[in-house]
Amino acid sequence: MLEAPLLDAQQLCVAFRGAGVGTRVALDAVSLQVRAGEIHAFLGPNGAGKTTTLRVLLDLLRPHSGSVHLFGAPLQRKSGTWRARIGFLRGECGAFHDLSGTAFLRLMAAMQQRAPVRRDEVLHALRVNERTLALPLSACSSGMRQAVFITAALQHDPELLLLDEPTNALDPLVRMAFLELLCAARERGCGVLLCSHVMDEVERVADTVTLIHHGRVRLCAAMAELRLRLPRRVRVLGEDGREHTRLLPCADAAALRALAAEEPRDVLIEDAGLDTLFQELDGEASS
């Protein structure tokens, strides 16, 4: 029998009423589950509703309808104890720029009400040294700041991580180290909800993918299953010596026969990647 999910959101609906623009539906029956030991990628174009969903999951925004269960129980609004089991990372935030990295991490540990047992490990992995931590956050580079914010989200060894574009501003080495930290957290049984626009990192670490567009879930599938469904990018070197790139549907025998009939000089076939999902959404939107 499957374990109860760490996070179970069902049929979330949120609408915003703005001056002069009428009512805008931000989330339309969004459902989402994150299980222990799973990295769940939550993808979508800008303005799709990812951050709004995260805000609802943290009780920072109350939905008009729908339910959220965290750790097997309905979201408790009066008590904050469940939040101590969550690590949340949001994008850039200037509120703490006056503080040094050390003071910020200490403040967050005090608020999280859990010992920062993983602080040193995360700081070491993300290459943040004592000297950087002593500086005010405003004096740090944006990459260093992001590393400190990541540390704040991971330092108390949370059971569920909600990460909104975590690798923004990170250099490639630190990004790889961060992804390794995520994988290690998954090994420990931590559930991760990862919002990102960087498709190659999602393909690398995600177990499940949910795609949201205009506040609606368009796709929810296991990454392994999705890989089989994604189209293939085919680079064909023709007789004339020119290279053409095209997308072929997965497991489409007729398309492969047509390709063979062209008698190409050489072909290179690779996964088209999750980017194509976005292209499909864009195509739907324009049609």
């Binding site: 805000r55 943290l58 920072l60 009066k78 008590s79 904050g80 104890t81 939040r83 101590a84 969550i86 949340f88 949001r90 994008g91 850039e92 935030c93 200037g94 509120a95 703490f96 967050m108 608020m111 999280q112 009400q113 859990r114 704040a152 909600l162």
Partner: peptide, 16 residues
């Protein structure tokens, strides 16, 4: 801090 992130970071912790 409303809508600028600081409040959300604070309220995502055990702080009610």
């Amino acid at each position: 801090e409303r809508g600028r992130g600081g409040l959300e970071i604070l309220l995502s912790t055990a702080l009610t």
